[in-house]
């Protein structure tokens, strides 16, 4: 078994990939569009408002069917996040294999202004989803 002293070895990235694949498998077979299969978002249930994550289960379900258009209608920010998460996972895998380039791309090396901009983006998205009539950002 290949082992590495850094970042907990190469086993962990593949473990995470397995868990993600399992979750996508469940999402592909058990349709979140039908009520009663998954818990409702606690924020939506208590406030009646959309949170930044509302619709992401249905978006991922659509992505397992390669239906990007439907996924985009449910939660565009979640669709945008998918390639970023895949890139972060690839970097993690390369880092676990000891790649010096992957070490240079560490998430902690991202310019702070980029992360703060991301925070503002998420907060603006949260508000915009709940503006009456702006259904293009929310699952409504």
């Amino acid at each position: 078994m290949p082992t590495s002293s850094r970042s907990g070895g190469v086993v962990r990235p593949w473990l995470v990939a397995g868990v993600a694949a399992g979750a996508l498998g469940v999402l592909a077979t058990i349709d979140p569009n039908e009520p009663g299969h998954y818990p409702t978002c606690p924020f939506l249930a208590t406030t009646g408002l959309w949170c930044p994550g509302c619709g992401s289960l249905r978006a991922m379900h659509a992505l397992t069917r390669l239906d990007v258009a439907t996924a985009w209608e449910r939660n565009p920010l979640a669709v945008i996040a998918v390639p970023l998460l895949v890139a972060a996972w690839l970097r993690w895998l390369l880092d676990a294999h000891g790649s010096p380039r992957a070490r240079r791309w560490h998430p902690t090396g991202i310019a702070p202004v980029v992360v703060w901009t991301g925070l503002v983006l998420v907060l603006a998205y949260w508000v915009a989803r709940n503006v009456p009539g702006w259904t293009w950002l929310s699952p409504a």
């Binding site: 949170c51 930044p52 992401s56 996040a81 998460l85």
Partner: peptide
């Protein structure tokens, strides 16, 4: 560098449906 848990922040914000993720960012 220390792990900033940015991936966790994105996951909790967009896929855990918990606004706690905003604090993680």
């Amino acid at each position: 560098p220390p792990n900033n848990n940015l991936v966790w922040a994105i996951l909790t914000t967009l896929f855990c449906c918990l606004p706690l993720g905003v604090a993680s960012i």
